[in-house]
Design a protein around this nucleic acid. Structure first.
Lengths: 201, 201
DNA sequence: TCGCTACTATGACCACTGTCATAGCGGCAC
DNA sequence: GTGCCGCTATGACAGTGGTCATAGTAGCGA
C-alpha cells in the first residue's frame, strides 16, 4: 500500500493518518506530516487553509473510506462468504500488520476520537462519519449472507466495536492474543445469526 | 464519586485520569492537572519526581484498579448473577454517565494507549497492567457463573474489547446506541457459555 | 514581456509545554 | 533558639507547536 505516486496533497493526508494512528493527534505535528510525506512545508497552508483541523478531518475521512474499501475487497476474496469469515479477515488484516511491522499503530479513527472528540467537534463528526462509512458495507454484507436486516447493523457495530477494543488491548500487550480471541469467540455468534430467520435461531 | 477529601497526591492522580480520558494524554498539561485537583503546582515535582510519565502511569493504574473495583461492586449488587447481567451493568455505568454528564470522556486506559503506546513504553506497560487487572475479576466472575475456565478469560477479553470499542463509537456519535447494541447482542452469547459444558441446561 | 495562478520556501511570532532552580513557609525535635 | 523536613510558591528556561507574512519559482495564456 501507500504508493507515493499520488499528488502531494493526497500524500500528506495519508501521512497524517499514519502518524496519527501511531502517535495520536496532538502528538503529531504539521511539520512531521510534511516531512513524512516528502512534501514541502509551505504546501500545508496552501492545501489545507483550514489548518490542522482540516488535515486531521481529512485523514480520518480517508481512514473511513479505506476501511470500507477493505471490507469490499475481503468480500470479493472470500469464495464462500460467511459472517465469521468476514470478521476473521478484518482481524487478520491487523494481525498481519502487527506480525510484519510491530505493534506501532492503531486505528486513526480511534486516535482522533480519543484525542479530539471533546475539543474539536468537527473531528468528532468526521470520526462518526468514518465509523458509519465503515459499518455500512459490513452490515450490507451480513444482510447478503442471510442476516435479518434489523440485526445486521447491530452485528456490524458489534464487530467493529470488538475489533477496535481488541486493537487497544493488543497494542498494550504487544500481542495479537486479544485480536485472535475476539475473532474466535465472536465467530459462532455471527454465523448463527445468518441462519434464515423463519424461526428464531 | 470523586470525593475531594483525599490527600493532594491522590487528588492529582484522580484529576489526571479525568483530564486524560477527556482530552488525551498529550493535550493534558501538568498545570491543568494541578488546577483541576485544586493542588499547588509546586506539589507536582514533589509528589511526582518522575514527571509527567509517572503521573500518567499512576493515573492509568488508578483507572485499572477502579474498573476492577466496579466489577466487584456490580457482582455484589446482582442478586442472580449472570454473564449478560454483569456485562449489562458494565455498560450501564457508561450509559448512566453519558446520560447524566454528556459524552465528554472515554476510558483513560484507551486514551493512554492511543497516545503513548508507541512513544512511552512504561505507559504502554501500565495500560497493559490496567487491562489485565480489569480482565481478571471479570474472568473469575464468569468462572463462578459456570463458564469453563479456558473460555472465561477469552470471554472477558471479548467483553472488555466490545465495551471499549463501543465507547469510541458512542463518543463520536454522541449516542449510547453502540453501547446498548453490544450489550444486547453479546448477552445471549455470554449466557450460553455459562451452561455447564457437558450438556446445555 | 507582462500578468496571473499554482505552488514552494522560509523566517518569525506567540502561546504553551515539561522541567528545573530557588526560595519560602509551617511544624516538630531538641 | 537551631536544624531539619514536608510541602508550597514562583519565576525562568529551552523546546515545540500551529499559524501567519512574505517572498520566490514555474508554468501558461495573451
Amino acid at each position: 500500500m501507500a504508493v507515493s505516486e499520488r499528488g502531494p496533497r493526497e500524500r500528506m493526508v495519508f501521512s497524517a493518518a499514519q502518524l496519527i494512528r501511531r502517535d495520536g493527534v496532538t502528538a503529531t505535528g504539521m511539520r512531521d506530516v510534511a516531512a513524512h510525506a516528502g512534501a514541502p512545508r509551505g504546501s500545508l497552508q496552501h492545501y489545507f487553509p483550514g489548518g490542522k483541523e482540516q488535515l486531521v478531518n481529512e485523514a480520518v475521512a480517508w481512514a473511513g473510506r479505506y476501511a470500507a474499501g477493505r471490507v469490499a475487497r475481503f468480500l470479493a476474496a472470500l469464495s464462500e462468504p460467511t459472517p465469521s469469515g468476514l470478521f476473521a479477515e478484518m482481524v487478520r488484516q491487523w494481525t498481519d500488520e502487527y506480525r510484519a511491522s510491530g505493534f506501532e499503530g492503531g486505528c486513526p479513527v480511534a486516535a482522533a476520537t480519543v484525542d479530539c472528540a471533546q475539543s474539536t467537534d468537527s473531528t468528532r463528526g468526521a470520526a462518526a462519519d468514518a465509523f458509519a462509512r465503515w459499518t455500512r458495507p459490513v452490515a450490507e454484507a451480513l444482510t447478503d449472507m442471510g442476516v435479518p436486516a434489523d440485526r445486521a447493523e447491530s452485528l456490524a457495530t458489534l464487530m467493529i466495536s470488538a475489533l477496535e477494543g481488541a486493537l487497544l488491548i493488543a497494542r498494550t500487550e504487544r500481542d495479537e492474543r486479544a485480536l485472535t480471541t475476539v475473532a474466535r469467540e465472536l465467530g459462532p455468534l455471527l454465523d448463527a445469526s445468518a441462519q434464515r430467520p423463519s424461526q428464531g435461531g
